[in-house]
């Protein structure tokens, strides 16, 4: 008994300590990024100034004065929000159909959807540019960025929602059907309330993916629809990386998403572990 108790005590110390170490390792890049953003470019590359330095807001002043941060941030909010919304509007009925009315091709369709994520983006850069600029005339518009973000995240949205919906007993949906509820009623009044945690976490993850998307947002925009990814990209200078300046821009770009994730972490964890211990 004494051994079990000692082991248990040791475990009580070791596991939290390990958890803290892992958390600190993961947190360090964020800490370093924020710290560096308050250093001058010269101090940022000096190892002896890692922790002790004179903080400056110079990089943030430069960012707001020389770069239109708020324009980029507004575009990121608009495009990520609407892309997430539209992905859910399409994804929820699609996942509903596949989860509760599967056909013999459902699995193939799901695999095909996922396989579209395997296409190298660079392979379709030229057709995308030609199509959107020369044929459709929607290059550098919010509409295009929303459309692209929505489409590239749709496979993940459908897959995640499908997994959550599969956890809901089919009988509940069928009971609704027996009571004469329409398909839309089943989704709105039964499915969405039951799978709310999963839908919320899917929405949050999709929003994060949209926010962080850089390849297409940089290449399909110029001025009007350019997002924070473009702002970060534009701060890589030909003389090398100016770490202080780049850290300030990166901090300002990731801050909204980190804050959002912080406030929604309960929903995020609840959604991600939905059905995991069933």
């Amino acid at each position: 008994m004494a051994t079990v108790s000692q082991n248990s005590k040791l475990g009580n110390v070791l596991w939290p300590a390990l958890a803290w170490i892992i958390a600190l390792v993961f947190f360090f890049p964020i800490f370093w990024l924020v710290f560096t953003s308050f250093k001058t470019d010269a101090d940022a590359v000096k190892p002896e100034f890692l922790f002790f330095f004179t903080p400056t807001l110079e990089n943030y002043t430069n960012m707001t004065q020389n770069y239109d941060y708020w324009r980029f941030a507004t575009n990121s909010v608009i495009t990520s929000s609407f892309a997430t919304l539209f992905a859910l509007v399409v994804g929820v009925p699609a996942a509903y159909a596949m989860a509760f009315n599967p056909s013999r091709h459902t699995k193939d369709i799901l695999m095909w959807m996922l396989s579209t994520k395997m296409l190298p983006a660079a392979a379709v850069l030229y057709p995308m540019t030609f199509l959107t600029k020369n044929m459709l005339g929607i290059y550098d518009t919010h509409f295009l960025v929303i459309l692209v973000l929505c489409l590239i995240n749709l496979p993940i949205v459908v897959w995640m929602l499908f997994t959550y919906f599969k956890e809901i007993p089919k009988e509940i949906i069928e009971a609704g059907k027996m009571d004469g509820v329409s398909t839309w009623g089943e989704i709105k009044d039964i499915l969405i309330p039951l799978a709310w945690g999963g839908i919320a976490s899917t929405a949050l993850l999709t929003f994060i993916f949209c926010w962080n998307e850089a390849y297409w947002t940089v290449r399909l925009t110029t001025i009007d629809a350019a997002t924070l990814s473009t702002l970060i990209e534009g701060n890589r200078a030909p003389e090398g990386l100016f770490f202080g300046r780049l850290a300030a821009v990166s901090t300002a770009a990731v801050a909204p998403i980190v804050i959002l994730g912080w406030f929604c972490q309960k929903q995020l964890v609840a959604g991600l572990t939905f059905g995991a211990v069933k």
Partner: peptide
Amino acid sequence: NWVSLEEGVLREQVTSDTATG
């Protein structure tokens, strides 16, 4: 209207823009 781009991205943007007219 000023668009600040990383050197490599700028080259890529200009070449794809030129290729599409």
